[in-house]
Design a protein around this nucleic acid. Structure first.
Lengths: 188, 188
DNA sequence: GTCTATAGGAAGATAGAC
DNA sequence: GTCTATCTTCCTATAGAC
């Protein structure tokens, strides 16, 4: 029962993800990534031969899997559309730590018109998020085009509330966005 | 009528602002700032003795003045609340180049809980933006607390639509957010 | 699979000539 | 007020011992 000397897979990815979400891609230097994980730089390169870019890609893929498993799949489960959306809101609250953690999709987005190494992953994750929400809204009797519009607006609202929470230094905007989510998606 | 050899105040600030909005604070290296302005690094330091941090501060202040003059002050002008909000939307469309330019307030925000050199400016600008919108909504007969909530949501929607537009590589989310703005603020 | 030590280059910033 | 040349620091990345 001795304490693990070396960080393992899940905890490692969590530490890396934390850093990227806190200071962004450029701000996440190898020195900082090394300090937060307890692994020296050559050890990080041993696990991620592609360096920082590979770390960010794997962190993004990890977040994508968490999103799919804990947020999107439950949207197709049993229960009323409203109950499922409320469940999604509570999962998003965990995902973003009550609004204290920024979104990787914001921090790793390339400038519009260019294409950074993460752009395909980012846009695919946004699309998957929007599609899953739109499906539930459609299921509740809203026309598909209107449902998709509402889903896009909801995703934007969540992203923007995270930006605003960070900018204002308080998490109320994020928590308000979550609480407003069911009515905004299913209203009238 | 000879061409100016050296870039002047307004054009200089525009170039710097462009770069910060495209690649963020860390991505805006002095080499890039030098290339885009046509001024060598020592010339930039001559004009901004505080270096990159001062450049970002002045760019932020510049944006704050533009926001106050072209977006917020017209909100207190003549005309119906709806007409003023529609005018604000068209000014925001210019400000963000139809959704193609990111927002400095997003790119220069410090991690929640810490306080970067721009955090005071960023939160003050967000507050001013929210206050100005809330005042118009209140003027239209909405209770002050509800008006402020709507204003916060609207600012978050705009910010998030910019994030989403960048992530998806298309500007529809931003333009949709602008068109939805009047109804969302003044509805029922 | 981890480490110490270091290479090689780009970063922010400055000295001093013109 | 601009420039060439340079400084120091920090960055990503690797060599090679254990």
């Amino acid at each position: 029962m001795g304490r693990k000397a070396i960080i393992e897979g899940d905890a490692l990815m969590a530490k890396l993800s934390d850093m990227f979400r806190r200071v962004g891609y450029e701000g996440a230097t190898l020195a900082r990534l090394s300090e937060t994980t307890g692994l020296k730089k050559p050890s990080l390169y041993h696990r991620f031969p592609g360096g920082k870019e590979q770390m960010a890609c794997e962190v993004l893929d990890d977040a994508g899997r968490w999103l799919a498993t804990h947020v999107l799949e439950p949207l197709t489960a049993d229960g009323s559309p409203r109950a499922r959306i409320e469940h999604m809101a509570s999962q998003l609250d965990r995902f973003y730590r009550g609004g204290e953690q920024a979104c990787l999709l914001n921090l790793l987005s390339a400038p519009l018109g260019s294409d950074g190494p993460f752009q395909d992953r980012v846009s695919a994750m946004f699309e998957a998020f929007i599609d899953a929400i739109a499906a539930v809204v459609t299921e509740d009797g809203i026309a598909p085009a209107e449902a998709r519009l509402r889903a896009e607006r909801a995703v934007a609202q969540i992203q923007g509330s995270l930006v605003l929470s960070r900018g204002l230094g308080r998490t109320e905007p994020f928590r308000d966005a979550l609480s407003e989510l069911p009515d905004r998606l299913l209203g009238q």
